[in-house]
Design a protein around this nucleic acid. Structure first.
Lengths: 275, 275
DNA sequence: CTATATTCAATCAAATTCAATCATCTCCAC
DNA sequence: GTGGAGATGATTGAATTTGATTGAATATAG
């Protein structure tokens, strides 16, 4: 047994302190001092040493166990408004992905929601320029590749000419894009020229371009467009004007409407426009 | 040639000591001395010999079993590991940066600590491959650029050949590097080949290479080295062997030791600057 | 908000532990 | 027997740790 003499080694004391912390999540300095038969000065020194090694959290009067609930706040999504429509759109888009696919994830809250659902798939290679998506996928088993580029704070994405060289070296099966606005004449549009530039580069390197846009984006243009010769293969939305849908399908753009009744089996339920 | 007598052989003593260590994770020198019936001087000699062979961990007053878990945390966010030494090293490195500089920040907890201090400077252009540093600098007013590349979960950095094209397009004034080990013969070394590759590319594109490494890194090599023709301009550390220092200075590598005496000035200065 | 009571961090003296040194002992070869 | 190599135990000055003290910082009560 470990019932050594009266002397306690530093390592041994730390073990006992951790034991006390494990028993009750917080302990006072005086309690530790009494339990281990050490002066409070020594206890404080030990606590500080252990705190500096990340073993516990120091609080006034004692110590508390370190909560492991922190992997999230790296890129905290504070303004993330959960939306049922975006959730349905993301779920519909998810069914387009297969195991072993190589996909690109753009910025935007809808695409981010899709990123959260990727645990159900296996062995993906995920390329993204969104730090929010990257933070979400950090612990996932998938292969994760980030494009470089200049950090744009508002969208938390990496954009601009510096993202170009790395995009030239890769080809993705499917690119899932977000946007600020979408019109048939101008395609996707956004508020930042660098962001538009990067979107264009991504679409050039994708075998299939899939746009995730809720109904509020359709028909409006933002500041910068991605150029006149835009390219799109699939549009996933929650509701769409019948006329716009026809125009898109004339251009061989498949339209998937993730309506209220069709959440899981979105691909099958596209025949019904849910306005 | 080895007369097996009634006295305890060295090998036999070591076995007994390991047995004691196995029973309770820590034992005092006096306890071993009493248990094996020999002087404390001999016990200390044995413990040192065993420590040098990596069989146990030496602590003041005795010995502890060697824990395999400590050297590299797998997934936990141990970057919160505050260390006074690393803090001092980062503070010393901070004084090398000037307003309007273009700097590169590598991965590693010491460099991350430096990233936290950059608020006191103005109009920096910061290039980094560390997601932790990026998260830290997200809200800063500086221009922030991320290299792309494959995401390495353990270090939370972007590494590998895909980071190469973007690094070819930029030149930084100062590159602040972290490392797992550093020797004069091999330079920096790390545990991952892709990470070593990216480090090498970065150092090629930096006018000045500055290594931040606490004393535990000096003199040891990790798995992969950055190549024989390594290049370094400044080493910032908390303590260094006098012989190694001379060898470095013969190679025109400046050595900055952020010792305890420099703490008061350095931290006081930065604390005030941060306010 | 002020006043009181804890708690903290820095400092210093005392105790403990360490590492280096030296004298002694054992074993073995010559 | 003599001498050398290696190991052991004691000694000593240095380094580390510990506990008490003190003024500052923080929390609590009124």
């Amino acid at each position: 047994m470990s019932g050594n003499g009266h002397k306690l080694l530093t390592a041994e004391r730390e073990q006992r302190i951790m034991q006390l912390l494990h028993d009750s999540d917080v302990v006072t300095v005086s309690a530790i001092s009494e339990a281990l038969g050490m002066s409070e000065a020594t206890v404080r020194r030990d606590l500080q040493a252990m705190h500096e090694r990340g073993l516990l959290e120091r609080v006034h009067g004692g110590a508390a166990i370190k909560q492991e609930s922190s992997p999230e706040p790296l890129f905290s999504d504070k303004e993330e408004q959960f939306s049922a429509e975006k959730q349905r759109i993301a779920a519909a888009a998810l069914s387009l992905i297969h195991d072993h696919d190589t996909i690109f994830l753009d910025g935007g809250s809808t695409v981010l929601m899709l990123a959260r659902m990727l645990d159900s798939l296996k062995a993906l290679t995920i390329v993204t320029n969104s730090l929010m998506a990257a933070a979400q996928l950090m612990e996932s088993p998938h292969r994760l590749i980030l494009t470089g580029g200049e950090f744009r704070a508002i969208s938390r994405t990496l954009v601009g000419p510096l993202s170009s060289p790395i995009l030239k070296n890769i080809v993705v099966d499917k690119a899932f894009m977000g946007t600020m606005g979408f019109t048939i004449s101008d395609g996707m549009s956004t508020t930042d020229a660098n962001e538009a530039y990067t979107k264009t580069r991504v679409m050039e390197r994708a075998r299939q371009v899939i746009l995730l846009a809720d109904r509020s984006k359709l028909g409006c243009s933002s500041f910068v467009t991605c150029g006149p010769d835009w390219h799109l293969d699939v549009l996933v939305t929650d509701a769409i004007d019948i006329k716009m849908r026809q125009e898109l399908e004339e251009r061989d753009i498949r339209v998937i409407v993730a309506g209220k009744n069709a959440t899981a089996k979105a691909t099958a339920g596209t025949a019904r426009a849910n306005q």
